[in-house]
Structure formats: C-alpha cells, structure tokens
Amino acid sequence: MEHTSTLERVLRGIALSLIVLFFMFPLFWIFLMSFQTNETILRIPPSLFFEPTLGNYKALITGKLDTAAGSLDIAFMKNLWNSVLLSTSAVVLSLILGVPAAYAFARHKFRGSEDIAFTLLSFRFAPPLLVLLPLTIYFQQLGLADTYVGLIWVYQLICLPLILWIVRGYFEDISADVEYAYRIAGHGWFATFRKIALPLAGPGIAAAGLLAFIFAWNNFVFALVLASADKQPVTVAALAFVTASGIQYGQIAAGIVLSITPTLAIALYAQRYLVEGLSLGAVKG
C-alpha cells in the first residue's frame, strides 16, 4: 500500500538515521581514536577536535611502542600476517573438504545422511572452552601445539560446518533438472559438478567462504591457548597493548582499524560479486 504521507516519510527517515548512528558510532569513534594520543583520548570532556597524529600507526608498523615506562618491542605486523595465514589456510582447506561434502549431502540422500550432517553442525554448538583442555593435551602429545599446522587444523574445525551447511543449501536450490540435462547431454557426474553445480553455487560458496573467514579471523580463545607469541593472530596480540604503564588506547584503536581492514575489504568486494551472482537468476527456469 502506498498511501504514505510526508510525515510518515520524515519519521521513517529519522528512525533509520538513528539506527545507523547507533551502529556506526563505535566504529567511527575508534577510527578517530586511532589518530589521537592517549592524552587527547582520555581528556574530559571528550572532544571531536584534536590534532591528528599518525604515531599510533607508525608504532604498529615499525614495531616500536614508546610508553611512559620506556620503549617496547611489539610484533603487530607479524601477528597480522599470522591472522591472514591462519584464516586463509583454514578457509581454503574447509572449502576443499566442505564443498564436495556439501554437494554429496545435497544430492545423495542416503540413510543417516541427515544425522551425519547434523553431527557436523553440532561441533559449532559446543563451547570452545569445553574442548580446549583435552585439545591442548592432545596437541602437546602429538607435537602440534604451537605449530601453524595445528592451528590451521583447529581453525578449520570452526569453518567447515559453516561452509558445509551454507553451501549445501545453495546446491539444493539448483534445480535437479539442470544437472540432469547436463548428464543426459553426455557428461559424467564429475563434469556436471564442475561445470554446472560449482558455477551456479558460486555466490553461495563465496558467501560461505567470507563468513567462515570472518569467524576464523575473530577467533580468540584457541589461539590464545594453543599458540605462542610468534604464531599469535591479531586478536590475541591486542593484549600486548595492556602494558604495565597503562592501556595504550590509541594503538589499540589503530590495531583494530588495521585488523578489520582486510575483512572489510573482502566483504565489500564479495558483496559486489554476490549481488551479481545472485541476480544470475533463471536457475529455476
């Protein structure tokens, strides 16, 4: 119904603005903080006006943190690299394992297939702390503790169920007839998977990969326990800013800005791809 008055439109606009403000303000504030020194951040009352400084970023990039108590070495860039390595490897591994599995679950209903799929998902339900202690002991005995392989393995456990369930839904949405048509045209099942199912589920796979990447990137507790300083991702490394001489708010803010930039960039890039992919349409004839 389109009987909207001007008043209605204005009110709706105000409500939307408030919501945007509410969600965007913390990000905006952190962005401002990253260009300030601790003094300007902590002054009372807070102000939007300050002299911007690149000092925080410089400290992170050069790895030299100057505090009131003296100079401190930090390995923030190394941690950022760890995050990229761990998350990317975990997502790639999960996609290689998860996409074919998702296809199998979507297309071949066998006795117990639903149960197996659900069991895989249920890994996501367990609180990480529950498995952390046994996992730590296993990893130490197997020599996997504090190795990239071990960490990627654990990260992959976070990604796989997510990818499996999302991608399975996308495969199920492809009309079986489209695949039948390709089979009947003389192509084997693997060619059909590669040439029909994969491209058509592409947007879904991208979405699932992106989501899994964000989950992996944001992981804190596994990395905290299983990795030593030189293998820690940014989430754990941020702890380093809580120094003996106080909390370095400016550097934390700059660290946050740097660490959300990759995920944000991927999200923006993938969003364009997703919209394009989903409007491919006509999958259902």
Binding site: D177, Y180, G186, H187
Partner: peptide, 20 residues
C-alpha cells in the same frame, strides 16, 4: 548404463537451461 552414455535427448518443462 549411466545417463551420459544412453544417447537420449531430453527437454524439460522448466527448460532446465544452464543459466551461466
């Protein structure tokens, strides 16, 4: 004999064209 080796032609009600 698998579907791809039966050498039949088929047209579907919903067309089942490959959208990409």
């Amino acid at each position: 004999i698998e579907a791809e080796d039966r050498g039949v032609g088929m047209a579907f009600q919903n067309f089942a064209l490959f959208p990409h």
